[in-house]
Simulated scan of single mutants.
Amino acid sequence: MDFLPRQTPKDGSGQFFKVENYLLNHYGRYGLRERYTRVILKAMCYYPVSVHWGGWIEQPLPDQMAEIIDTIMENHSGDMNMLFTSKNALLQFGWDCLNISIYNPDEEMCILFERIAASEGLFWRKSE
């Protein structure tokens, strides 16, 4: 799940790293924290989850998830892993990039995450 609809060219002819750095340091202005929080909370509505944040948290409360995301973004560091226990899939969120990675999603999850991404003005794409 990404803020860009496709991967940038490998030749580096654009200004991806400058734009990424700017957005990472001015995320509040563009509502990125809120978008990421809503994506993760929406996903929690469909599947049971365990979150790794200093230890495993089974079925975290929405307030806990919002606090984790706030902490990561305000400290400009950290990673959070969310295991979808019934699907054997993993969501990874970290401050240092402007995407949410989801590993091992089945077709049902791909369709759902594509819709969730679109609802937040983000793009769902499989890695190349």
Score class of each variant (00 low, 15 high):
residue 1 M to F: 14
residue 2 D to Q: 07
residue 2 D to R: 02
residue 3 F to R: 11
residue 6 R to D: 11
residue 7 Q to H: 10
residue 9 P to V: 05
residue 13 S to W: 09
residue 15 Q to K: 11
residue 18 K to G: 07
residue 20 E to P: 02
residue 22 Y to T: 05
residue 23 L to Y: 10
residue 23 L to H: 05
residue 26 H to L: 10
residue 27 Y to K: 02
residue 30 Y to T: 02
residue 32 L to W: 14
residue 33 R to D: 02
residue 38 R to C: 02
residue 40 I to F: 11
residue 41 L to M: 09
residue 48 P to Q: 04
residue 51 V to G: 02
residue 52 H to P: 01
residue 52 H to W: 12
residue 53 W to N: 01
residue 54 G to I: 15
residue 57 I to A: 06
residue 58 E to W: 04
residue 64 Q to S: 15
residue 66 A to C: 13
residue 72 I to V: 15
residue 72 I to W: 09
residue 80 M to F: 04
residue 83 L to D: 07
residue 86 S to I: 01
residue 89 A to R: 01
residue 89 A to P: 06
residue 90 L to E: 09
residue 90 L to N: 12
residue 99 N to E: 14
residue 99 N to A: 12
residue 101 S to K: 09
residue 104 N to K: 13
residue 104 N to G: 01
residue 105 P to K: 01
residue 106 D to A: 03
residue 106 D to E: 06
residue 108 E to H: 05
residue 109 M to T: 00
residue 111 I to E: 10
residue 111 I to Y: 03
residue 113 F to K: 08
residue 113 F to E: 00
residue 114 E to D: 10
residue 116 I to K: 05
residue 116 I to P: 00
residue 117 A to T: 04
residue 119 S to R: 14
residue 123 F to Y: 15
residue 124 W to Y: 15
residue 124 W to T: 00
residue 125 R to L: 00
residue 126 K to T: 07
residue 126 K to R: 14
